[in-house]
Design a protein around this nucleic acid. Structure first.
Lengths: 230, 230
DNA sequence: CGCTGCTTTGACAACGCTCAAAGATAGTGG
DNA sequence: CCACTATCTTTGAGCGTTGTCAAAGCAGCG
């Protein structure tokens, strides 16, 4: 585990979704972590593993999932640049974290962080904020998956991806996850995800130049599909 | 807002679901709260309200929900005796909390709690633990709702209710929420919930003596329906 | 260049939703 | 105390959306 503290200068702004958080703050945590590189399709930790570390994403994409006894996989969320995941004071991780892309992460030892947070009010507030944000995002996702039709779910996923994108031109969305991942995230089969995507393409709402890129051609229309009025 | 600190003696053990937490601990928070009584079908706070207070349930049942623009309601969870809800350092509540039953709650002022947690390590750890538990429960619920059939969802709901029950005879489950509430919780229509319940009754897995009581006649069978093998 | 794995499209069946109506229960007033 | 009413629950019939199964298309990689 090598430390490249100089690289922490590149750590991206924390993007929280929470309306109360400014999106242009760098996290106060960045000064204390260790930078690590992971190749794609690598398990960072598995559900049930002792939670010795906690991570922030500098670059790449992570999927956080749980797999049932019958093999059904649920992806609870994706961690993108600026996000944190695996926060767990002590005890075990409740989800499995795997890289989708090659990824650069910042890693924090749980014990060290616990000590730091006892001493430092700012760190403490930051950790609490991260945890609250995770809860908020999960609740939102639950509401999306719980009672919406296929079109609404996929459209909501795309809007989310667009809004979280760090790109200048947000219309050109990078899709690092596979169709299967999307399906496991929104609670649909891979076939239904494909069908919805082609439908949106036929309606000229999106374009699909290649499998890991989606262009939003008509953002208002996409948002309308995601959040049906009345 | 009256204080009845003596009543806090009756505060129930915190029941966390988390395997790492003992279920027979009283929460260290109980010494600092104010006891309040709410009648049934009363709003405690609404989504978007300034989060000045945070609550623990002594008695009764609370539903935590969010309602979409089109009127669709999603119930993110139920708070039962021993549970906490509405934890939000500052900013706004992300869900609406309403009583289902008449309820006795302990109420904590956010500012006071923030001050206490800065001074007291035990309180701090407790709050963190409560928040982590909420996240864990929501992730679990998401996995249940995301990709399971109607029978599995309703059976999982019943198992959950049974396991959280404080009764000596856990087979005899109190169901304070309406069928509509159950539907909004597991992501099904009220009709489907009813159909599944009658199906389970016909299979002699449960009995339904009245609308707010369900008797588990065959617990292994119910658990099998909830978690299909292979 | 051919393989492998992922994605897309199609046909069909099934599960759950919608609409409708009857049945049960609780709350209210005579 | 009972009848009446409003609300909630249960059951039924038909339809639509999504899942299943199958096969073709496509892209990356040795």
């Amino acid at each position: 585990m090598e430390a490249h503290l100089t690289e922490l200068q590149h750590f991206l702004p924390t993007s929280y979704y929470l309306p109360t958080r400014a999106t242009d703050n760098r996290s106060p945590l960045t000064a204390f972590g260790t930078v690590l590189h992971y190749p794609h399709h690598k398990t960072i930790f598995a559900k049930g593993d002792e939670a010795s570390f906690f991570f922030g994403v500098i670059n790449g994409a992570i999927r956080l999932s749980t797999t049932a006894a019958n093999g059904d996989r649920t992806i609870a969320g994706f961690a993108l640049p600026g996000d944190f995941f695996g926060i767990q004071w002590l005890g075990q991780h409740t989800l499995t974290a795997e890289t989708i892309d090659d990824a650069t992460l910042v890693c924090f030892g749980s014990k060290r962080l616990a000590r730091l947070s006892d001493e430092n009010k700012v760190i403490r507030a930051e950790l609490f904020s991260i945890l609250r944000h995770s809860l908020w995002a999960t609740q939102n996702h639950l509401a999306n998956v719980s009672r919406h039709c296929a079109q609404e779910r996929v459209a909501t996923f795309l809007v989310e991806l667009m809004d979280r994108s760090k790109k200048v031109n947000r219309r050109d969305v990078d899709v690092p996850m596979s169709r299967q991942d999307i399906g496991d995230y929104v609670g649909l089969t891979i076939e239904t995800v494909c069908r919805v995507l082609t439908e949106l393409r036929q309606k000229k709402i999106i374009d699909i130049p290649n499998r890991r890129e989606i262009v939003i051609r008509n953002e208002p229309a996409l948002r309308a599909v995601a959040q049906p009025e009345s």
